[in-house]
Design a protein around this nucleic acid. Structure first.
Lengths: 133, 133
DNA sequence: TTTCCTGCAAATGCTTTGCACGATA
DNA sequence: TATCGTGCAAAGCATTTGCAGGAAA
């Protein structure tokens, strides 16, 4: 699948423009999680505002997921799809995704116990990845 | 326990000043989670910078916990102590705390399965509280 | 051809910093 | 008295918005 093709899929109803394709390619070219600043630096021809607007658009379409660091900093990462959580390495800054139905179930049970109507949740684990030990 | 007393306890090694006492009292007087803006509005005699500095100080001493909203907004809340998670109501903005050892255990198991050395984690549940149904 | 998107620049809003004065231990 | 903390104002950043020109459908 080409970039143009899945961009069209992800952004159905929105125009496929050069700027959007460029932003998406820059995201793909970045190994780990990135900041808006990273994207801007890699895309000298694309305006800062456009990068922000594209990031917001992709988030709304679940193409991009927001990763909140321990210190409150924000990073983004192309979503591998579906519901998942993050393992954020405090040394190399890398982010792994993981999913665990049992965990989600337990979260739902806690919400129910508190008479809370759950819409969604966010779980971030902080520590050192295998490589950083 | 008076404000002065537990301020002294929480901030051991730091001076107990009128501004810090005032900030802490304003926090106690606020029912739900608050923003720095809320505190400043309630404390016309205390400088904005001091409120920010005090909030940071209290966070470092685990007196105050940061609550990240679904849209990325930040609120603060006096910690009831110990490890816990948050139930954030998207209607009234209220935040309940809860803790579940089984959940923490499952989180640790997931980290171990990913060969990840866990330092800490953050879990926020979003939805409607019992009152907002 | 109509509507949507873009770059630029200015505006915002939140948070931090520099500094001289005042308070605390 | 020696530090540490404070208020004020200015600086810093990250993000958003207004707008006129240009591109996509």
């Amino acid at each position: 699948m080409t970039v143009a093709e899945d961009t069209a899929v992800s952004l159905a109803g929105h125009r496929v423009t050069a700027a959007r394709r460029a932003v998406l390619e820059a995201m793909r070219a970045t190994p780990g999680p990135f900041t808006v600043e990273d994207l801007c630096a890699a895309l000298p021809g694309v305006g800062r505002a456009t990068v922000f607007r594209t990031v917001k658009l992709l988030q709304e379409h679940d193409v991009l997921c927001r990763v909140v660091l321990e210190d409150g900093g924000v990073r983004y990462q192309l979503s591998t799809g579906g519901h998942h959580h993050h393992l954020v390495c405090s040394r190399c800054g890398g982010v792994q995704e993981f999913a665990d139905p049992a965990l989600d179930l337990l979260i739902q049970q806690n919400a129910r116990a508190a008479a809370f109507a759950l819409d969604g949740h966010s779980l971030e684990l902080y520590g050192r990845c295998a490589a950083c030990g």
